[in-house]
Amino acid sequence: MVRVRTEAKRDAILDTAAEVFKERGLEGASMSEIASRLGGSKATLYGYFPSKEDLFVHVALRVAGKQILGMYEDLEARAADDPERVLTEVGKKLLKRVLAEDATTANRLAVAHGRIGNLGRIFYDAGPGKAIEAFTRYIDAATKAGRLRADHPGAAAHHLLALLESEIAYRRRLQFDDAISASEIDQCVGRAVTVFLAAYAAPRTSDKAS
């Protein structure tokens, strides 16, 4: 019974915090206002989340989590499909999610406060870790289906994620380039997938014959 109340309270905090962060942004929001709207004390709030930054990251991950799950849900089932098409589609979705304002802010906070409440691990498991897991399963299945050739699917998954993010993600995270267009994302993903397949695409039948 206590567990149910604890989870319900945590959910209520996240719901209220999401409203405040949406209205005021990270800088303008305060734990005092969140506690006031919640009808509780700051002490209760800090009992669940050790800092405003920690709370923001959890709010961002909660929102992103639903989108991330949908992004990868049918990836493994498409193992026999053309890998260029599959990876281009998921790559565009992933990069748009990575470059969203809440995601980039959460990433910076997780880096800055990663040791507080194990925030860095929480962020990794809910974000990059989910991508690595999904890509690993897909690459393993696509290798078995004869579409890719990867002796170490986990390593290949890390390579794929790094390639997808390599051209523009760090510009966004370091806050010196806000103007990243949809066409630029498409081009960057296309180049990343081309490089990945140059290393991991299975030889075509004509190539094997020659």
Rank of each mutant, 00 (worst) to 15 (best):
G154N: 05
E73I: 08
K208Q: 15
A79Q: 06
G28D: 15
N118R: 10
A112V: 07
D15Y: 02
L45F: 05
R62H: 01
N107L: 12
A8F: 03
V195L: 14
A182N: 11
V189Q: 01
T105P: 00
A209Q: 11
G114F: 03
D82V: 04
I132N: 09
R172N: 08
E7D: 04
F123Y: 14
E84Y: 08
K144M: 06
A103E: 14
D102Q: 11
L14W: 06
D151E: 05
E89W: 02
K22I: 03
L69M: 12
E27S: 14
A18C: 06
R85L: 10
T205K: 14
G40F: 10
A17V: 10
R5L: 09
R85M: 11
E101I: 06
D186E: 13
P83F: 00
A126L: 08
Y72G: 06
G28V: 15
A12S: 09
V111A: 11
R147P: 03
K96M: 07
T44K: 06
K66D: 12
Y200Q: 02
Y46A: 07
S51L: 12
L87W: 00
G146E: 06
M71S: 09
A169C: 07
G146I: 01
I122E: 13
R3P: 02
T205D: 13
D207E: 15
R147G: 01
Q67K: 15
F176M: 10
V59R: 02
M71F: 06
A202P: 02
R10M: 00
G114N: 06
L109W: 00
A80R: 10
L160H: 03
D81S: 08
L109N: 04
I68K: 10
E133D: 13
H158G: 09
F196A: 00
H158Q: 11
S166T: 09
Q175R: 15
G25F: 05
G70Q: 02
L160S: 03
L38C: 07
I180P: 01
K208R: 15
G47T: 09
A12K: 09
P153T: 02
L87Y: 00
A60V: 03
R204Q: 14
A103F: 06
T44M: 13
V86P: 04
H152K: 08
T16H: 07
E184M: 04
A110D: 04
T6D: 08
R137W: 04
V86F: 04
D207F: 07
G154H: 05
E165K: 13
K22A: 15
L14E: 04
A209S: 11
A199P: 00
I139S: 01
L61R: 07
Y48H: 08
A179V: 13
G190E: 05
L99C: 04
L87H: 01
R3F: 08
G40M: 11
A131G: 04
M71A: 08
T194V: 10
G91Q: 05
D82P: 01
A141R: 09
L174A: 09
V4I: 13
E73W: 09
A202W: 05
A142P: 06
P153D: 02
G190H: 00
S206Y: 12
L95G: 03
A43P: 06
R97H: 14
H58I: 01
A192K: 03
D15H: 07
N107H: 14
T104R: 15
L164K: 06
D207A: 13
E101V: 08
R37L: 11
T194M: 13
D140I: 01
R171W: 08
A35C: 05
